[in-house]
Amino acid sequence: MPPVYDPDAARAEFRAGLRDITPLSLGVALYGLAFGLLAAQVGIKAPLTALMGLTVFAGSSQIVAVERLAAGAGMSVAILAGLALNLRLLLMTASLRDELAGRPLWQIMLGVHLTSDENWGLMHATRCRGGRAGYWYLVGGGTSLIAVWAGATMLGTGFAGLLPDLAAIGLDFAFTAAFILLLRNLWRGPGDLAPWALSAGTTLSVAVLLPVEPSWALIVGGLAGAALAAGRGAAHG
């Protein structure tokens, strides 16, 4: 695919990616507004929220890191909790070898930076249906997502100043609700139950028994659950 460069085909694919991602971008917009509200609670201003959206571009990790800051966690553990959630991106960009092969460095850096759950998943879904979806399709979807994400989070942060008290209207619960949906979307089958339960149980035990910040407990619990998932699969072949 990459060796012969056809600008018309690349543009068509970019536009298709931009168009097909729209329903997913709408969901990201709402998530972004809610993240903006949370960011405002810990004193982050609108321009920094936009900068964060553009440079990090990994919604759930930004939410976890800022949520941890709001809960009073230190800086390093907030960053670490966010990054732990992003480790799955390793596998996603590793799977892009064919799309990125032979491309100039700027295209490789752009491609990996714009890789997110939504456009990566959409690229595979479109291919499964027999559509043409390669590098520029991924970049097209990512362009829409990053613009919507940065814009919506900035808007949410600006908007937060107009609201009287977030807790009084239940908005502080927005993230718990969003995490419940996220968990539902991550559910692949009953095999997930034991790792998730172990992770939650370990986190709560560590948080109660050891004098550490709950965020460290979170990382320990998450790793314990992931280790169980890694080992259990081996036992079942």
């Binding site: 732990a84 959630l85 480790l87 997930d192 939650a200 709950p214 998450g222 790793l223």
Partner: peptide
């Protein structure tokens, strides 16, 4: 398998804490 399971485990743990 471990890397794929990590996000769900972290979100489950975070919900438990919240």
């Amino acid at each position: 398998r471990g890397l794929n399971a990590l996000p769900g485990c972290l979100i489950a743990a975070l919900l438990a804490v919240l």
